[in-house]
Structure formats: structure tokens, C-alpha cells
Amino acid sequence: MAKAMEIEVNGKHYAVSYPADTPLLDVLRDELSLTGTKYGCGEGQCGACTVLIGGAPKRSCQIPVSAAVAKPVTTIEGLEKEAKLHPVQQAFLDAGAFQCAFCTSGMLMSSVGLLQKNANPKREEIVQSLQGNICRCGTHPRIIEAVQHAAKMMQERGR
């Protein structure tokens, strides 16, 4: 049965009515038209659907919408502020760290989650954090480079 809930996404509050076990991913994409978050496997294996819930990267295909109530959700659409890209977005752009770019949203959200927790990650820590995100085009070296570059930019800006 559909259940009325309120969720907060990218700073906005939305009243949604869905069965409580509906994946957050479906609500984001189909109800809120936030299609930057992608479906890649529906099994939490590829990371394309990664969003931040309470600041931590989570697979939105595995999180029921009811579990996102009362915690702020950030999607790829929430990273850019006043037409200024988040440093991680800028770093991906600068490094050309995408090809088909279908994995990019998930890569960005996992990276933002990492850098919020660890401002100066070692290479191995980046690899560890992104191990659950699949890029089939093989852009991994540039993605690592972009995360390192973003870490530098964010430190320089004193964020």
C-alpha cells in the first residue's frame, strides 16, 4: 500500500506517496525527475545509483524510500551551487574522467562522500572507496586522478 512520506532531497522537502519498500532510486527518478542518479544493476553492485544520505554514500536502489525519511538526501543535481560546480565535478571535467559517463554521477557521489570523511585520502583509500562503482569504459586512472585533484582544490579553498 502506498504510504504518505516526506523526504528531503537537495535541501527541498517533497511529499511522496509510495509503498514503503519502493527503492529510493525509483522515487528520485520517476517521481522527482532527478534522473542524474542512474539505474545500473538494481542490486547494489555497480554504484551508478549512489546518493548521499545523511552525508554518507548509499546505493539508492537498495534503500527503501521509507529509510530516507528524516535524513537529508543529496543527489548529483544537488552538488552544483549557484551555477558553480562542486570541486569534485570540476575535477572530473578537468581530468576528462568520463567516456560514456553513465557511471559518472555515482562516481562523483562516492567521491564526495569520501572527501567529506577524509579530506586527504591516499590512493589506496580512493580505490577502496570506489571499488563498488563500476566503470565499463575503463576510465579508472583518470577518476583516481580527478579525486586527488579535487582533494587538493578543496583543501586550498579551506572547505
Binding site: 527518478r29 520517476d30 525527475s33 532527478l34 534522473t35 542524474g36 542518479t37 542512474k38 539505474y39 543527489t75 548529483i76 543535481e77 552538488l79 552544483e80 560546480l85 565535478q89 570540476q90 572530473f92 571535467l93 576528462g96 568520463f98 559517463a101 553513465f102 559518472t104 554521477s105 562523483l108
Partner: peptide, 21 residues
């Protein structure tokens, strides 16, 4: 030269087929 429309991809704005509604 960098990828055309790169910004649309890092902001999630690019609409793939599966994003069309």
C-alpha cells in the same frame, strides 16, 4: 580538446534514453 557537453555529464543533466519521460 575536452569532451563536448562535459558539464551536462558531471551535473547529471544529460538525458540518456532511460532518463526520458
Amino acid at each position: 580538446l575536452p569532451k563536448v557537453d562535459g558539464r551536462a555529464f558531471v551535473t547529471g543533466r544529460h538525458q540518456y534514453t532511460s532518463d526520458i519521460r
